[in-house]
Nucleic acid binder design. Structure first.
Lengths: 346, 346
DNA sequence: AGTGCTATGTGTATCGTTCTACATTTCCAT
DNA sequence: ATGGAAATGTAGAACGATACACATAGCACT
C-alpha cells in the first residue's frame, strides 16, 4: 500500500499527503476532519475521497497536542463484578458510530492505584472520564472535574455542580427488596453490606444508600427490632467468614439481603456448605441482576438497575460535557426486583 | 499550585519549566526522563528534585510524536469471562512499578469491532499490544506484528516469528481431564466446544487444541467409539439449547467436558432444571478454574492455567519486544486439573 | 604538550495535527 | 457599479516532548 520504492520503512499517511493528493491546503483537510465551519461541499467531497483512497487515519497523539484525542477513559475498580460488563456494553454501544473510543483502566479497588490511573489518563489527554464507583469523592473529585469533564456512575452526589452522575435509585431498590421479603412473610431480614473505606461516605456510596433504604423500609413495616446490618470488605475470604458467622450464629436471619450479587452467591455457597436449604432455611436476595442470577443452581432474586441503560447515559452525558455543557445533570433510573426461587416460600 | 498570578488558566508544567527550575537544558531533562545514557548522578538528582517539586508529569501525546507513549493496549473479546480478570491482574502486577500503563479495549467478540479497536490503538501510538484470544490470525496478524510489537495470548502460533505467544498447553489440559474422568470410570465422555468462526483454525484456537487433546486421550484410552464433540456459539441462548439437546437426547453422556467454565456453569444449570443430579447422573468439568468453580453450588472440577502467570509473561515479553528483541518467544505453562465434586463418583 | 578517548551536557529540527489571523472570492442590497 | 458582509480557503505558528549532531571537559597515555 505504501511501498515507497526506496528501501525505507512504510510511512504513515499524514494530513499533508491527503492535502497534496486532494490539491488543497493542510488547513482545509483539518477542517473537514473536525467538521469545522467554512468548507464547501465540493471541497469536502474531494478531501473525503482522498482520505478514503489513501487510507488516512488521523494520529491521536498529534491531535492531542492541540485539540481533542477523541478518547474517553473509563476507570473500573473491579472487572470481576459482571455488572460492569453491562455498563461497558452500554458505553460501547453509545460510542459505536462516533469518533470516540473508550479505553478502560483497572484500579483493583485501591484508591492509590485509582489516583495514579486517573493521572495517567490525563497525561494521555483523554477528552473526558467515566469514573465507575470511584473511591475518590468530595472536594478532590470536584477539583478533578474542573480539570477534565467527568461523569460519575455508582456514587451519589446529587448536589455536585462540576460533574454529572448516573445512578439507579439504590434506596428505592433496597426498599423494594425489603417489601418483597416482608410480603413473603419474612420478618428477621438482615443485610450484608460492604465495609466503608472512609468516614462519612454513607450518603454517597451505593451500599450506603442501600443500607439507608433497608433501614427505612424495615422501620416503615414495623420491623425495627429486626434491623441488622453487617459489613464485610471486598475480599472473598472476608465475605465467606462474615457470612459463615452470620449463618452459624444463634439467631440466624430468615432472609439475607446482600448489597451485590457477587456477595449473594458467596452466601448461597456458605449456606449450602452448612446444609441450609434455600429459601426454606434462608432466603437470599442480591443486587444488580447479573447473568449469574439466572443459573438454576443460583436462581437468585435480585434488583435490576439495567446497567446497559446506565452506560448509555454515561456516554451521552460525557460527550455533552465535552462539547461544552456547563450545568450538571444527574440521571437516575428506577430499579425493579426480579423475583426468583431464592426468596419465594414454597 | 500553579496559580500564575495573572488571571490565566492554570497551565500544565512542561519539560521547559523543569529545565528552567533545575538550571539545565531541556535535552538534559528529557534524558533523565527516559533514563538515557549520558547523565551524571548530580544532574539526575537536581532534575528529579525539580520534577518532584513542580509536580511535573510528561504529556503522553507529546512523547508519542517522536518516541514512546508508554501505553500498552490490551484487547479483550469478552470481559464476561472471569478468566480474563486473572490475566489482567497479572498484567497490571507486572507493570505496577514501571512507566507503562495498560489500557483495555473491548471488542465484544466481533472481528469487525476488533479490527477497528486495533487500528484505534495504533492511532493512539500505543507502544505495543497484548491481544487476548484474538479473531485476527494468520497472515494479517503477522502483517500487524510488523507494524507494532505484539504478544498474543490464547491463540497457538508456535511457528510465528513476528510476534510472541503466551498459552497454557490446551491439548495436555484436555487430556488430563479425560484421564481424570476415565479414572473415575466414566466412559461415555462427551465434549462441548465452541463453534469456529472461520475455517481451518482448529490448530490455532484454544478450543480447537482442547478438542484435539480430548480426541487423542479418548483414543489412547480405547474410548474411540465414545468420542462426541458438539459445538455451540458464544451466546447464552445457544449454549443453553445445545446443552439441553445433549442432555435430553436418548444417549446422554455420563460426563461432559466443557471448553470453558462459563459453559460448564450453564450445563450445570440446564442439568439442574432437568432434574439431573451432579455428578451421579452427569459429571461436568470446565476449563480455566475461575473463582466461580469454588462456590458450593457449582463445586466444579476445572483445569487451572494460572491466568495471573500468563498475564505476567505477556507484559514481560511485550516490553522485551518493545526494547528491541527480534526473535519470537513462545511461552507455555503446564495446566493442572483441580478436582471438585462435579466429577467425583461417590 | 599533544592525541585520542569517554563522559556529560546543549541546541534545535522535528513529529502531525489544530487553530488563529488573514487573503480572496462570492453574493447581494443599494 | 459599488460597498460591505458572508463564505471559503490558506499560511504558518504553536503544542511538548524526543533525539540527532555537536561542543566541551576531563583524563590517560605517549
Amino acid at each position: 500500500m505504501d511501498l515507497s520504492g526506496n528501501g525505507r520503512r512504510a510511512q504513515r499517511v499524514t494530513i499533508r499527503d491527503v492535502a497534496r493528493d486532494a490539491g488543497v491546503s493542510v488547513a482545509a483537510v483539518s477542517k473537514v476532519l473536525r467538521e469545522a465551519y467554512g468548507v464547501s461541499d465540493a471541497l469536502r467531497a474531494k478531501v473525503r475521497d482522498s482520505m478514503e483512497r489513501l487510507g488516512y487515519r488521523p494520529l491521536a497523539a498529534a491531535r492531542g497536542m492541540r485539540g481533542q484525542t477523541y478518547t474517553l477513559g473509563v476507570t473500573l475498580s473491579d472487572i470481576r463484578n459482571p455488572f460492569f460488563t453491562d455498563l461497558m456494553a452500554g458505553i460501547n454501544a453509545a460510542l459505536e458510530r462516533t469518533q470516540y473510543q473508550p479505553l478502560v483502566g483497572i484500579s483493583h479497588s485501591t484508591s492509590a492505584i485509582e489516583a495514579g490511573l486517573i493521572e495517567s489518563m490525563m497525561d494521555r489527554q483523554m477528552d473526558g472520564l467515566i469514573l465507575v464507583a470511584p473511591h475518590l469523592t468530595g472536594a478532590p473529585l470536584a477539583d478533578l472535574a474542573r480539570r477534565i469533564p467527568i461523569v460519575v456512575v455508582g456514587q451519589h452526589q446529587p448536589n455536585a455542580t462540576e460533574f454529572d452522575t448516573v445512578n439507579n435509585d439504590d434506596e428505592l431498590g433496597a426498599e423494594l427488596v425489603v417489601r418483597h421479603l416482608a410480603e413473603q412473610s419474612f420478618a428477621r431480614i438482615a443485610m450484608l453490606s460492604l465495609a466503608f473505606d472512609r468516614a462519612g461516605s454513607v450518603e454517597a456510596t451505593v451500599n450506603g444508600r442501600r443500607e439507608t433504604g433497608y433501614r427505612r423500609a424495615m422501620a416503615g413495616l414495623g420491623l425495627k427490632q429486626h434491623i441488622n446490618v453487617v459489613r464485610a470488605a471486598q475480599t472473598l475470604r472476608e465475605i465467606q467468614t462474615t457470612a459463615r458467622h452470620m449463618l452459624e450464629g444463634p439467631n440466624r436471619p430468615e432472609a439475607l439481603f446482600c448489597w451485590t450479587d457477587f456477595v449473594a452467591l458467596e452466601v448461597i455457597s456458605v449456606a449450602t456448605e452448612l446444609g441450609l436449604s434455600i429459601p426454606d432455611d434462608l432466603a437470599v436476595v442480591g443486587y444488580d441482576n447479573t447473568f449469574l442470577c439466572d443459573l438454576a443452581q443460583n436462581d437468585l432474586t435480585s434488583v435490576d438497575q439495567s446497567g446497559e441503560t446506565l452506560g448509555l447515559q454515561c456516554a451521552r452525558l460525557l460527550i455533552e460535557r465535552i462539547k461544552g455543557r456547563g450545568e450538571a445533570q444527574h440521571f437516575m433510573v428506577k430499579p425493579r426486583v426480579v423475583v426468583r426461587a431464592s426468596s419465594q416460600k414454597r
